[in-house]
Every structure is written in C-alpha cells, then in structure tokens.
C-alpha cells in the first residue's frame, strides 16, 4: 500500500468512526442524507482524492479511489460518495473539468440521450443515483458523428424521486433540450466499454466493503448473543455460517485486490467481469447467512444489518451486472483460440 493511500484510508476511517452512528445510517430511510459528514470529507480533501493536482485535486490514483469506495461501502454512509468521486474521475479522464458541485452519472453502452447541433441534450434516465441532490450529470449523448461524454446541469431537468431497495435516492430524470456545460471529443465504443469496466470495478470495491461489514458485524453478534445458555458461536451449525462468511469475504477481498492490480497493469479486460460475476455468489451467500445467524432482529429496524444487505440486493442490479458480463465474457470465450487453461494463465 502506498503511503498516500494508507493516509487517505486512515483519515477516512477516522472520520467515519467518529461521525457515523446508527442514526446517521438510518437517515437514508427518512429521506435525508449526511450532509455534515459530506462537509467534513470535503474539508479534509478526501472528495478530491482522485483528481490530479493540476485540476485542483489531491493527485491520487485508481487504487486510492477504490480504497476509499471500499470504506464508503463498509460504513453505508448516506452520501453520494461513489457518484461524486467517479463522476469527477471520468470527467478528468476525458479532459473535462471536474467540479466541486454535487454531481452524479449515468452510463450506458446504448446511450438514451441525444445531443443536438446547438449543444442541447434530451433524454430520460430511469434510476439516477442521488439525482435530486445533484447539480450536474455526466452521461453519454449521441450527437452528430458519434457519441460524446457530456456534463449537463440539472437545474432545469424534470426529476421524479425514486429509491432503490436500500432506500437510496434513484431518481427518474428527464432532460428536454438542456444546454450542456461541456462535452468531450467523440468517444468510440472501446472508450465507452472502458468507462463501464471502471464503473463496474468501482462498484465491486463498494460491494467488497459492504460484505466485509456484514461479515464483521455478524461475527460480533455471535459473540454477544446467547441461546441455550451458550454464546451462539459455540454451535457447530453457526460455526459453519461463520466459516462460509469468512470464505466469501476473503475471496472477494482477494478478487478485488487482484482486479485492482490488473487495472494498474492495464490487463483488466477479463479480471473486472470475473470479479463482478464472482461477487454475486458472495452477495447471495453472505446476505442469506448473515440474516440466518441474526434471526428475527436482523430483519427489523432495531438492528442495522438490513442497511447493508439491502444495499447488496440493490447494487447487484445497478450498472452492468452478472447477466450482461457473463454474456460479454462468453462471447470472448467462444471466439478465443486459447484453451481454458491458457485463458486463465495468460496475463
């Protein structure tokens, strides 16, 4: 771990530990968000962590970004962390100006948004994360001659509030001839795919953090809860749940680390889909096992387990998930001249 990364991670954990209580996490279900935590992160420069110094950021890299997202996932703070950091990251990547206003994104390989000759976008997006809070949206728009990455102001957009299974804002946004703030050069299919790969990878980091939290708090629960006069971790059947939770958490952690390394070395074309596909099994196993171990309390608002499991059930269907990635990967496998073993051992 680089020294910068270590420092970023430590600072963020410290802030979260100090300021996040059960009440903070509960805000999401009251239709509120943790704006105070957001301000603290901003003051500490953590929101600009992956923006280059040239563009006014702190100059981190993708590994830093993912490490922060993982912690974000772990604490389930009701703030648009991934949306903000990732939007700015891709803006800069495509030579558009990052912003410190609230921003979110919507990416699709089949853009449902058009850009007119005079620089106005029109289109509709069904589930924009934190849309109602955002001043800007980054998206891909189809214009003359090709696709563009565009930054669009949202003040004149039509916003219909909605939520995912975890209660996080996922809003319908309709843009009708909204003048854009900025656009990139024409971007090709490969560049869009690369963006979606990165988005998938970032989401994997968030999910890994969420899984880790569920694992840790379930272990804690088995050490506090007594039944039949014993702590429940003493029961073999509970131990099997614990072992499976540990296994899934470790395997996802290792997958995400390997994925990050592949990203740094630019050999991530298959590593990201593989991680994303594997993560779904972890989501199934961990959420089922954790709830089973918690018993009735886990399915109530008395306990905060549900914030994490509901997030997992939401995140797996946001962006490009298992189904689409399997189809993509299988297309590559069908066309490959390599054996399966060569596929697995060629870097």
């Amino acid at each position: 771990m680089s020294e910068i990364k270590e420092l970023l991670v430590k600072t963020m954990e410290k802030i979260f530990k100090k300021h996040i209580t059960k009440e903070t996490v509960d805000l999401i279900d009251e239709g509120q968000w943790a704006d105070d935590v957001w301000e603290i992160l901003k003051e500490n420069g953590l929101l600009a962590a992956c923006i280059s110094e040239k563009a006014g950021g702190a100059g981190g890299d993708l590994e830093d970004l993912f490490s922060l997202l993982k912690i974000g996932g772990k604490y389930a703070v009701p703030i648009p962390l991934m949306e903000y950091i990732f939007s700015n990251y891709i803006l800069e990547k495509f030579h558009l100006a990052p912003t410190d206003e609230m921003i979110t994104y919507n990416l699709s390989d089949t853009p449902n948004c058009t850009l007119s000759e005079n620089g106005e976008v029109s289109g509709a997006f069904p589930h924009v994360a934190w849309g109602r809070y955002a001043s800007n949206l980054v998206t891909i728009a189809k214009g003359s001659g090709g696709n563009y990455l565009v930054k669009v102001p949202l003040k004149d957009a039509l916003v219909k509030e909605g939520a995912n299974l975890a209660g996080e804002p996922r809003d319908y946004i309709k843009l009708t001839a909204i003048p854009i703030l900025e656009k990139s050069r024409i971007i090709d299919y490969e560049q869009i795919e690369e963006m979606i790969l990165l988005e998938t990878a970032a989401k994997c980091a968030v999910i890994a953090g969420t899984l880790e939290k569920i694992y840790e708090s379930t272990i804690e629960y088995t050490k506090q809860r007594q039944q039949f006069g014993r702590y429940i971790h003493r029961f073999q059947l509970i131990q099997h749940h614990i072992a499976q939770l540990a296994g899934e958490t470790v395997i996802v952690d290792s997958a995400v680390d390997n994925m990050m390394e592949a990203l740094v070395e630019k050999r991530h074309r298959h590593e990201i889909p593989l991680t994303r596909i594997r993560i779904e099994e972890a989501i199934r196993t961990v959420s089922a096992s954790a709830h089973q171990v918690h018993g009735a309390i886990g399915v109530t608002y008395e306990h905060n387990l549900h914030h994490y499991t509901r997030r997992l059930w939401s995140y797996r269907d946001e962006g490009r998930g298992h189904l689409k990635w399997s189809q993509k990967l299988s297309r590559d496998l069908l066309q490959s001249n390599n054996s399966m073993w060569e596929f697995l051992t060629t870097y």
Binding site: L274, R278, S330
Partner: peptide
Amino acid sequence: LTELVAKLWSLRNL
C-alpha cells in the same frame, strides 16, 4: 460456464 470460470479464477488467486 462463466460462473465456474469466475469461481476458479478467484479461488486460484486465493
């Protein structure tokens, strides 16, 4: 089959 490939890939990493 990709599901098995993903499982194998992650186990091998571990």
